[in-house]
Design a protein around this nucleic acid. Structure first.
Lengths: 203, 203
DNA sequence: GGGGTTGTCTACCGGTCGGTAGAGAGGCAT
DNA sequence: ATGCCTCTCTACCGACCGGTAGACAACCCC
């Protein structure tokens, strides 16, 4: 019985849980298989998290914090309007590249209902507010097409997360297209798409 | 024991299964609860579908056929380039309005992997080819921004399906926003977004 | 009206899952 | 060295799930 100590064990369990919740869904992943994957018995996992739901909440919290710190770094030094928008998209795709199950986990969290998703959303709420302010300022200065900034943010979210999570659809629509190269292609596509969508009307 | 006869029973079971697979996920929905919801015992369901996977395949087939017929109707009489694009989006939103679990089920099918999603995609493959031809023609005539038409179709898919399925995110981003009015708002938003994204560059 | 077909049921099984109870080993402070 | 606290384990339980076996009833055709 290897003793790695409390906090480290916690974090590896959470990482593996996000992995499996993202891949198999909350229902589809069993605490037993999560425990086995980190080399420990189910009852050891239940020592750290009293039940499956508590484990999920820890995952939501951790995922939110990870995304928040990732985006904070990505936004450093991004000055102009388009640099900032691009930095956010690039940051999310970068996170997805090194942690493929992360977007799937976020989508699963949304699927589980508002109560679960809010646990995640609350952590990144400051970023949400900054994003809406940013979009509003861009509209006021005429750099972005005028519209409801919150709805725009929602639509941007769906486009980015969708292109990261709908691998089966990508396969069906454009044919076999996998791996890092595919991810880069999709990032470029989303960037072009978003840039075109944000652009003010010709008038 | 009410006998509604074979074919009708089959279709009501499939409809309920799509409902529950969409709401709870494939793993989360049990054949027992599906059977109970249609007022029948689990073993009666297993008389029509030898196992759970066969039921899923019937659902994928039925969902594909329903979407195909819906879009065929929507495209009737749509002549101009933008009319056709708008008709498809409006048709999908219309289907979602009268059958809220339908988009969730399609997304769940994609989550289950390419094998499952292809069952659905194969049925609407003619539509996919028409869409790509359509986008290509629009690019050739300069009505649509030039790019890879298949990738564009994929990104359009993610934007539309995302805005139909990410209700929890909508709630977190724009605040409580539910019901038919919300759906109409999202349809309008997606239409504006897509129109802006398809528009050729200024110069 | 008898026999096959179709449809629905009761009864049951093996496996898995989330969770409880509690023993015991290693480290640390006194 | 003793006793406590942290961590991991074995053993087990009740619930549920997917699926099998087979009885039985309604209907249809002849």
């Amino acid at each position: 019985m290897p003793r790695t100590g409390g906090e480290q064990r916690r974090t590896t369990i959470v990482a593996e849980a996000i992995h499996q919740f993202g891949r198999d869904g909350y229902k589809g992943a069993s605490i037993e298989s999560i425990a086995t994957a980190v080399g420990v018995r189910k009852q050891t996992l239940l020592y750290y998290f009293p039940n499956k739901e508590a484990l999920l909440e820890a995952c939501l919290q951790a995922a939110g914090e990870r995304l928040a710190s990732e985006l904070a770094v990505a936004l450093e030094g991004a000055e102009t309007y388009w640099e900032r928008a691009e930095a956010v998209i690039h940051g999310v795709f970068g996170l997805a590249a090194e942690w493929p199950e992360f977007p799937m986990f976020v989508r699963e969290a949304a699927r589980l209902g508002p109560a679960a998703f809010d646990r995640f959303a609350d952590v990144i709420d400051p970023l949400r507010l900054r994003a809406i302010e940013f979009l509003q300022a861009g509209m006021d200065s005429g750099e972005i097409r005028k519209q409801d900034p919150a709805m725009l943010l929602f639509t941007l979210y769906t486009a980015v997360v969708g292109s990261l999570t709908e691998a089966s659809v990508l396969n069906a629509v454009v044919g076999s297209d996998t791996g890092q190269a595919s991810l880069r292609r999709r990032e470029r596509e989303v960037l072009l798409f978003v840039r075109a969508a944000l652009r003010p009307a010709k008038d």
